[in-house]
Design a protein around this nucleic acid. Sequence first.
DNA 1: GCGATTTGACCTGT
DNA 2: ACAGGTCAAATCGC
Length: 319
Amino acid sequence: MEKVSSWDRKIVISELTQGRDLASELKNQLQPAKSREACQHLVEKILSSYDNALSLLNCMALIENPSQGNGLLRSASPRSSDGSDLIDSKDLVIKKRKTLAKWSAQVRVGCGTGLEGPFDDGYNWRKYGQKDIFGAKFPRAYYRCTHRHTQGCLATKQIQKTDEDTSLFKINYKGRHSCIRETEKQKKENSLILKKEEGDEEEIQRHEAQQKMIILKNESLELDTKEEIFTSFEFPEPVNESNFSASYSPSFLSPATSESYFSRMNHFEIHHNLRTSESDFTKIISDPTSVTNSPFEDLDLSIDPGVLDPKFLDTLEYF
DNA sequence: GCGATTTGACCTGT
DNA sequence: ACAGGTCAAATCGC
C-alpha cells in the first residue's frame, strides 16, 4: 500500500515556498530599470514551482482518495482491515508509468576514457535488467533510480550503444526524479523546512536575510540578460573527467509538458543559452526520432552533461 | 554483510 | 505470438 510520504509533503512545501520567494523577487525586479527578460524568467520559475506543487497535490489526492480519480485506481483494489480502499500498488505503478514523461539523449563517450558505459548524470541509478533488442547489435540496459524504494522515485533510463557508432550511446529517460539528492544546498533547504515546521524563527530570519543578500548581489551584477537567464540555472559539480558530447533533441511535447519550463521560453533563448554553455563541444548529433513539427524544431542542444543539472535535463525532451 | 549487477523467467502491450 | 520491459534469485565485489 502506497501512502503519501513525508518526502512528497516536503517537496510540495519546498515548491510553494520557492514560488513565494520567487514572486517576492519578481516584485523587486518589476522596478522600471529591470530587464523584461529577467522578469519573464522569474515568472517561468514561479509557474514551474506551482506546476510541480499542483502535480504533486493532484497525485496525493489520487493516492489518498482514489474515488476522486478516473476509476482506474479502484479496479480490483483490495481493502484494508478498516474497510477503506487500498490502491493496488501494481495498478498505481502502471498508471504512473503511462503518464511518465519521456525524453532521450545521445551521449558520446570519448576515446581512451576506459569507460564501458555512458556518463554519470548526477543521479544514482541501479541497473535492473539487460535485454537483447531485436535487430540491434548491442543489448539495452535498464536502470532505475536507486531511491525507488526509499523515496518512491519512479525515474528510469535505458542505455543502448548505437549500431553505427560504438562510442555513441542512446539514452531514453522515463519519469522525472522525485527523489532528493542530498547536496549541500538541499541539506540546507531541507533543514530550513524542518526549522519552519519547528517554528525556529531565528534560523528562518537568518535564511531570509541571506536570500535578500543574494538578490542584492545579483542585482549589482550588470549581466547581459541572456547570461543572466542562463546562469540562474543550477549546475552540479562536474561528475567525471571524461570528454563527451551530448545531443538532447526534443521530439515532441506532451500536453502536460507544454506547461513546462522550457516550452514557455522561446526557441532562440534556449538555443542561445545552451550554446553559451558549451565547453568541450565537439559534434552535434541529430536525433533521428525528432519530430519535425516540434516546437523545438531544428534545435540542437549540445551540452556537456558534466555541467548540466539533471533537473534541467528533465525539461528537454518528451515523447 | 550489504548493496550492486547479472541473467533467466515472467509479465505486458501491440 | 512476439518483442520489450521488469522481477528476483544468484552472484559479485567492496
